[in-house]
């Protein structure tokens, strides 16, 4: 299987392959969502080094829990940011960056260099671009993506407030996130 084939795979397909030990699928998933996670962590911590450390833990947790991802319940971006929220919450509660997933994996620590600072800021900026692009989405998709990803609300709750079915909300979130990804990739 060629690496470029994986680039066309859905997130669900990639995560299923990751769960089976496909390192290339992990790399594609990682590159696809890295800016989202780094930007999210940077916006909440306002500390690039801390954001990088949290990002490392988030993707280690992705590797550990890829088997538990259920595409029928959540978009991959929503699931990923849910993990990020857990990692950040655990870190705040314990006063130190959560490293449980990396320890379980036996992953080596990675030093943060000065040159990495620029990269984090670039990722954060690209997430700001995403915020601008979010504003440009069609109103129905924007409302669904905002409610699900930014406000972290349940699909049922969103469906109730938007007056449509859960399935419709899921489709809008999925389409909106796909548009955002396409926009960021160009």
């Amino acid at each position: 299987m060629l690496a470029r084939d994986r680039a066309r795979w859905s997130d669900a397909h990639l995560l299923a392959a990751v769960a089976a030990g496909d390192e290339r699928a992990f790399s594609v998933f990682y590159r696809r969502h890295l800016a989202l996670v780094v930007g999210w962590c940077t916006r909440r911590t306002r500390d690039p080094e801390l954001a990088a450390d949290l990002t490392a833990e988030v993707f280690a947790a992705v590797l550990m829990s890829a088997t538990r991802y259920d595409a029928t319940n959540d978009s991959a971006a929503g699931w990923l940011l849910g993990i990020a929220r857990n990692v950040l919450g655990h870190s705040v509660r314990h006063g130190q960056v959560d490293a449980r997933a990396r320890q379980r994996l036996g992953a080596a620590p990675i030093a943060f260099e000065d040159e990495d600072l620029t990269l984090v800021l670039e990722f954060a900026a690209s997430e700001e671009d995403a915020a601008r692009m979010l504003a440009e989405l069609p109103a129905d998709e924007r409302a669904a993506v905002h409610a699900r990803v930014i406000e972290d609300r349940e699909y049922r709750d969103i469906a109730s407030s938007l007056g449509c079915s859960e399935m419709v909300v899921r489709k809008r979130v999925s389409r909106g996130l796909a548009r955002l990804r396409e926009g960021l990739a160009t």
Binding site: T55, A60, A107, A108, D116
Partner: peptide, 25 residues
């Protein structure tokens, strides 16, 4: 040199290749 994120990718992909996450499960 590789950035923090390149090294992170290599480290975690290596763990995936070794099946560290599967053993752990």
């Amino acid at each position: 040199s590789d950035s923090f994120f390149d090294r992170l990718e290599a480290e975690l992909a290596g763990r995936a290749r070794q099946g560290a996450h599967l053993d752990r499960a």
